[in-house]
Simulated scan of single mutants.
Amino acid sequence: MMPTTVSLACSCGEVKGSLKVEASHYFHVSCLCCDCQSFATNLGQAGTILDEHGGTELFQTYPQYLTITEGKEQITCMQLSEKGLFRWHTRCCNTPIGNTMTSANVPFVGIPVTFMKFASEEEKQEALGPVIMKAFGKYAIGDMPADTHPRFPLSFLPKIAHFMMRGFLTKKHSPSPFFLDGQPVVKSNGES
């Protein structure tokens, strides 16, 4: 399967970019955790980002595959706790861009699918494939969906470990739109 390029844009169009979708180098998931829900609420975007159960559709891949081509000066970041993920979003319209660990050396970014631009649901499915895992269903709004794991499925850990090891060995953490010379491009604004 040939790599696919997906267009990225925030809701107001100030921030644009592209994402390389490389076969077997990603996970298409839904996260219902309370932090993802809090992030959407803090941005004032809960109605846009979250599904009816409070899930955020995420595309987890390597930072090297994500490029911001316009509006880099609009990128900012928050942490929901002192040791929490860096949650990157735009200043202009509070569109979420991606979640990373706090270290520039970790080859991981979770990109909300709402930052991606598709002409149709079919185009999205063709580019990203189906959601393969729904986690942290214990935080679901209303009843937990039947296809959702209450926490994080342990059966998924070997896949994550293999993904991370391959990323470390092939240095897929860099370049990253979020880190420059090992430092975040902006400081986290902390809890908001």
Score class of each variant (00 low, 15 high):
2 M>Q: 09
5 T>D: 10
7 S>E: 13
9 A>Y: 02
10 C>I: 12
11 S>F: 10
12 C>Y: 02
13 G>Y: 01
15 V>K: 04
17 G>L: 04
17 G>H: 07
18 S>T: 03
21 V>Y: 11
24 S>C: 11
24 S>L: 14
26 Y>L: 10
26 Y>S: 12
28 H>Q: 10
29 V>G: 05
31 C>Y: 10
32 L>Y: 10
33 C>R: 05
33 C>M: 10
34 C>F: 03
35 D>K: 06
37 Q>V: 05
39 F>I: 05
40 A>V: 13
41 T>N: 05
42 N>A: 09
44 G>A: 01
44 G>S: 07
46 A>Q: 01
46 A>R: 04
47 G>V: 14
47 G>E: 11
49 I>W: 01
50 L>A: 02
55 G>K: 10
56 T>C: 12
56 T>A: 14
57 E>K: 06
57 E>N: 15
57 E>F: 04
60 Q>P: 00
60 Q>W: 07
60 Q>I: 13
60 Q>H: 03
60 Q>R: 09
62 Y>E: 12
63 P>I: 10
64 Q>M: 08
64 Q>A: 13
69 T>P: 02
69 T>D: 08
69 T>I: 02
69 T>A: 00
71 G>V: 14
71 G>K: 05
72 K>Y: 08
72 K>H: 12
73 E>Q: 05
74 Q>E: 15
77 C>S: 14
77 C>T: 15
79 Q>A: 02
82 E>R: 06
84 G>V: 05
89 H>M: 09
91 R>Y: 05
92 C>R: 04
93 C>T: 09
96 P>D: 02
98 G>L: 07
101 M>E: 14
103 S>Q: 13
103 S>C: 10
104 A>P: 13
106 V>G: 00
110 G>A: 15
114 T>Q: 07
118 F>E: 05
118 F>H: 00
121 E>G: 04
121 E>V: 01
123 E>R: 01
124 K>V: 00
125 Q>P: 06
126 E>Q: 14
129 G>A: 08
131 V>H: 03
132 I>D: 08
134 K>T: 11
134 K>R: 15
137 G>N: 00
138 K>H: 14
141 I>G: 07
141 I>N: 06
143 D>L: 11
147 D>N: 15
150 P>M: 04
151 R>H: 11
153 P>C: 06
155 S>I: 12
156 F>R: 04
158 P>R: 12
158 P>H: 08
161 A>T: 09
162 H>Y: 14
162 H>Q: 15
163 F>N: 00
163 F>V: 01
164 M>I: 04
164 M>R: 00
166 R>T: 13
167 G>I: 01
168 F>V: 10
169 L>G: 00
170 T>V: 11
170 T>P: 03
176 S>I: 03
178 F>R: 15
181 D>W: 07
183 Q>C: 00
185 V>Q: 09
185 V>S: 10
188 S>E: 04
189 N>R: 10
190 G>C: 01
192 S>N: 09
